[in-house]
């Protein structure tokens, strides 16, 4: 039997990271918790309010609406981006110059900064001069994303799909490339249909990367701010005001730091829960 020496000194190596995280995450988070139980009118003066802001936020229709919109947006983009990403990855070439061309094309949207994507789509979709807006109006649609809720949603969703489907594609493609040729040869000998190859070879082999893609897209879409803010500014009305946009409106627009802090903590708890659920699923997949 081997007696392993347990040495905990390696934990000291973690100290620099801990200090860094403390400054950029833990201390600001502690401050948010402090704000969430107080009221301020500026000048660094705070007045104790207790649980009032949490009660107010949890019962506010505005928060429920923003959360509902956020969940709907996340659901919509996942329903579109994941199958679309898998589909594109399956049709991408596996050898030759086409691989490089496809990979570069796929990576391009991911390299564009979020505010530039918002500005680009804003110009692209303008109903009177934008290529997309002008074209849709030209073929008979009454397209105007600045005034019509449906078109505002369609444009925000299309923008996110354009920006982020590539990530799913690249991850799935990496998963597909890791499947040895022997699997395909065996399936050919067995006379498997292309659906069976997908269902019993490709999909199980992509499971891990798909879970990662799903996790990344879920978290990113749940925290989306810049792109819809630049594109629609949360409008028309509040129709594309997602949680993060609403939070910024409360915190910076209205300078209601107490309610904004309470809202941030609730938002943080929801994000943390989603992360934990997906992480648990991912680890379970890995164990299996």
């Amino acid at each position: 039997m081997i007696n392993k020496t347990i040495n905990q000194k390696a934990w000291f190596m973690v100290l620099p990271v801990l200090a860094l995280v403390a400054f950029n995450a833990i201390i600001p988070l502690m401050t948010v918790v402090n704000y969430s139980v107080q009221e301020t009118f500026g000048d660094n003066l705070f007045f104790w309010e207790g649980i009032k802001w949490f009660e107010e936020v949890m019962r506010s229709e505005r928060f429920h609406d923003a959360l509902g919109r956020q969940l709907l947006f996340t659901l919509l983009i996942l329903l579109i981006e994941v199958p679309l990403g898998v589909g594109i990855a399956l049709t991408m070439p596996r050898q030759g110059i086409g691989v490089t061309i496809c990979l570069v094309l796929m990576a391009l949207p991911l390299l564009i900064p979020w505010n530039v994507v918002g500005a680009m789509w804003n110009i692209f979709a303008l109903p009177d001069i934008g290529l997309l807006g002008k074209m849709l109006n030209g073929v008979g649609f009454d397209y105007n994303f600045t005034q019509n809720t449906f078109w505002a949603w369609a444009t925000v969703v299309a923008m996110d799909v354009w920006h982020w489907t590539s990530l799913v594609v690249l991850l799935c493609y990496a998963g597909l490339r890791s499947i040895p040729d022997a699997y395909y040869q065996a399936s050919k000998i067995d006379g498997a249909s292309s659906w069976q190859v997908f269902r019993y070879i490709q999909l199980p082999k992509m499971k891990r990367v798909l879970t990662i893609a799903l996790l990344l897209r879920l978290m990113d879409s749940f925290m989306i701010y810049t792109e819809p803010f630049v594109l629609t500014g949360g409008g028309p009305g509040n129709s594309t005001t997602f949680l993060s946009i609403d939070l910024v409106k409360v915190a910076l627009g209205q300078f209601d730091l107490g309610p904004a802090a309470a809202m941030s903590i609730i938002y943080f708890l929801v994000v943390l829960l989603l992360c934990w659920v997906l992480y648990t699923l991912m680890m379970r997949n890995e164990t299996n």
Partner: peptide, 15 residues
């Protein structure tokens, strides 16, 4: 640390 707007209740929570 005054910018962090500490209260004894939140301090107790973190402790």
């Amino acid at each position: 640390l005054s910018w962090m707007a500490w209260t004894w209740q939140t301090a107790l929570f973190f402790i």
